[in-house]
Structures are given as structure tokens and as C-alpha cells.
Simulated assay, not measured.
Amino acid sequence: MRDETPSEWLRAEMRDTIDEDYEIELEDAALSREIARIYRETHPDEMPRHQYFSELLRLQAELIRLQDWVSYHKEKVVVIFEGRDSAGKGGAIKRITQRLNPRVCRVVALPAPSDREKTQWYFQRYVSHLPAGGEIVLFDRSWYNRAGVERVMGFATDNEVEQFFDDVPEFERMLVRSGIRLIKYWFSVTDEEQQMRFLVRIHDPLKQWKLSPMDLQSRIRWEDYTKAKEEMLLRTNIPEAPWYIVPGNDKKRARLNCMNHLLAKIPYGDVPHEAVSLPDRVFNPDYERSVLPPELYVPQRY
């Protein structure tokens, strides 16, 4: 095999990068033919794939600059992702974090509270996940569970919900006063679009795990969730931490719009970087590499 030039190697690396994006996008393509046909008919103005990937890579490059700025200046960033089931929160989070350092940017998606956690101060289990200096934390659902699913499904009493609404504005003001940059997104999706996405999950074996009993209840209680969302936005939209609504019917545009807006909300810039050079490898003429037994190797099936 001939030796590759640096430019050929870089082109190959870029092809691998695009392949990674296509692999993620397969989750949108692994549908039955009938469901795929119906989905295309309901989304005739979907963004062209080449345009989407071009913008995605550009925004992800900017997110790397943001990450470096946060790390260098010891900034603390919290981004909350809320919205109806299947509204696209997870897809947006996946694209935001795809090329970032998990030591700097991490995702928090907490399960239902344990019996012990139910006896704690409501915000307590979230506080332990807040960022230190130089960290970005993305909450895939957050303390706003109390204003949404807990309220609608009866897991919280009326008094607990009212106490939450009284407490959350001051709680978030405390976070902002402590130096945390707090950004809150609500992913909005129409009734018809959610129904389509649930049907996709039902018919696609790769997505059935996403469909929980709570998701099914959210279809039954659509209007209850709507009323809960409207009151939540009204009572918790404070100047220190406003809500930003992301229209989510078009998943690709929703991801790009969210990423672009997030970048615009933080005054990041370039930071100093030390020049990196690859040191020469040290060769020891007396070193002999030992032969490892073949059973240690993963079978080469591909």
C-alpha cells in the first residue's frame, strides 16, 4: 500500500468524520418503508442533507472554541433541556456533545428519585451535579420535572407544586449570583408531530426502547401537559434565567437553531494554546516485543 500524503490523510480523516455523522443520522433512516414514506410526505421542506451537515460541522467547531474558553476562564455553564416527549431534546444534546471533551461537558439525565431522595429538599439531588469552574453541564430534563410530569401524573401534591413555583425563581437567581451561566430551552412540538414520532418508535426496533409507559400517558394527557407547560413558562420566566422556545417539528433545523443560539448567549472567544509538536519516538536496541497469545485478541470478523 502506497504511503499517503498529509493532505490525503486529512481528507480520509474528514471522510471518517462525515461517516460518524451519517452513523448517527441512521437513527432517522432506520424506519420501515411505509413509515419513512409517510414521514417524508409530512416533512416536504426538510433541510438538504449536505446543507445540514455543513452547518452542523461549523457549529460543532464553534462549540469546541466555546469549550476551550469555558475551560480556560473557569466559567460555569448550565443548559436545561425541557419539552414534550419526542420533541428532540436528546438529539440536540447528542449533536452538541458529539465532539466535546466529556471531562468539560457532561450530560445529566437523572432517573426517578429514590425513596431517600423523596425525603430531601427537592433541589438537593440536582445541586450535586452543578458545574465547577471550567465545566458545562447539560440537564436532559431537570428540576422542572415537578412542574411537568410530576404535576400531571400526580406524583407531586398541589402544595408541593406551589412550593416549587415559589422557590425556583430564587433558586435560579442564587445559581446566577454564584457565577453560573444558566440557559433554559423548551423544545416545542405539535400534537400531530408527536403522534408521528411515537408511531416511528413503535415500528422501529432501534427506537422502541425510547417509548416508555410515561410517553404513552403523555399522549392521553396532552392537554394537561399543555396547561402545565403554559403555567410553568409564565411563572418561571425570570430576567436572570429566561426561557427560550425551540420549535422542534423539523429536527435538523431545531438542532442547528439551538446550537447557534447557545453560542450567541455566551461571550466566548479564542484563548491561548501552547504549540503542540510530536516528540521523536525513543528506540531501545535491546528491547524485544513479546508475542501475546492469540486468544487475547478480538476475533477479526470484519
Rank of each mutant, 00 (worst) to 15 (best):
V108L: 04
P131Q: 09
P102A: 09
E150P: 10
V161T: 09
T190L: 04
P205W: 08
L138G: 07
A87R: 04
G134Q: 05
G90D: 11
Q208L: 14
G133C: 10
V149M: 08
A147R: 05
C105W: 04
K89M: 06
K210C: 08
T119Q: 14
E117C: 04
A92L: 11
E135Q: 06
F165W: 02
V104G: 07
R181K: 11
K210P: 13
L199F: 13
K207C: 10
D191W: 11
R116C: 00
N145D: 13
P102M: 13
Q120Y: 08
D191F: 08
H73D: 11
S114H: 06
F164N: 00
A112E: 15
E162D: 14
F164Q: 10
E150L: 00
S212P: 13
E193M: 02
V168A: 06
K89V: 11
N145T: 11
A147Y: 05
G133T: 11
C105E: 05
S188H: 03
I136E: 00
G134L: 11
K94F: 08
M174R: 05
L199K: 14
I180D: 02
V152E: 03
D140F: 08
R84W: 01
R99G: 03
A156P: 09
P205M: 13
N101C: 05
Q195C: 10
D166L: 07
A156G: 07
P205Y: 12
S142A: 02
K89Q: 06
R116T: 12
G83W: 03
D204F: 01
D215M: 13
K210M: 09
T97Q: 12
D166H: 01
